[in-house]
Design a protein around this nucleic acid. Sequence first.
DNA 1: ACCGTATTCGCAACGATTGTTGATTCGCAA
DNA 2: TTGCGAATCAACAATCGTTGCGAATACGGT
Lengths: 153, 153
Amino acid sequence: MRPPNELSTAFRAIGLKVTPQRQVLFSLLHDHDGHPSAESIHLAASAVMPGISLRTVYQTLNDLVAMGELQQLQLTPGSSRFDPNVSDHHHLVCDRCGDVRDVYVGGVTGLEVQGLEGFSIAITDVVFRGTCATCLDGSSATGTRTPDPTRPT
Amino acid sequence: MRPPNELSTAFRAIGLKVTPQRQVLFSLLHDHDGHPSAESIHLAASAVMPGISLRTVYQTLNDLVAMGELQQLQLTPGSSRFDPNVSDHHHLVCDRCGDVRDVYVGGVTGLEVQGLEGFSIAITDVVFRGTCATCLDGSSATGTRTPDPTRPT
DNA sequence: ACCGTATTCGCAACGATTGTTGATTCGCAA
DNA sequence: TTGCGAATCAACAATCGTTGCGAATACGGT
């Protein structure tokens, strides 16, 4: 994501207004290197600007996604996550704790794809799923993901 | 996915029962080469067995996923899709019509990943996003995806 | 055939996200 | 500086996809 001041200009350029709420979000997202959900962004924004509406957060996130300043990720069932990093990178997803991290991957353009049949590729997303170092250490100590309670163990 | 008779055996082997509803789903999914949502599976099942509950469809889909007979995909916001093809393949997603197709990709193991830091990779998913041949032809003729109605054109 | 237990179904509930409406405020171009 | 249109908020309601719950039913090992 571009820095707040550039985003302000970009917003104005397409007829969107730069409100205090949006500025708070700009700055929060710009300084964020994780993959927050809308809910957690709202939480963080509320700390800085009490009373900011969740509705407003969604609105602005959608605008940023539409402008290509933010990437919306669907890595797990449930909520979307938003990635302020729009450079050419990919993702690591921990099956245990649900954590998401960025990785840089070489050789993506060298993938041999069979069966394209006229499909025009715009973006290639690579997602590695497995277990993160933290979860490997504690081995089930730090995991937040709960197992299926409907089936016996 | 394995054929219905093998699935029946597998279900019994782990203490799950083989009901008429499940047999319908087994056969429907086995003969399916697409990426149906739970809803559309329920629709197809209803044609064969009127009155089958959506709840039951979800239950069985979850069981199949847990057994590794079915792959659950999160490719777009909204509903999950289920892929009866569990062989080593990847996906093509059309941004316009939302269609999903299987592709076979070579060179995945040759990807150079930087920043793993102890992360243990279990699965690598590659998703190509772009425009399918059908949507390229008609160019907006066949697309089902609707643009954002809240913003002027 | 019997019986325990899984399964079914319908409905309610849930989390995530969007629509609505109306009053109020506020950004920003002219 | 002024005026218009946009944005916000509050307060809900609504939607979508999915799961929890409880009573009735049926599978399948013995």
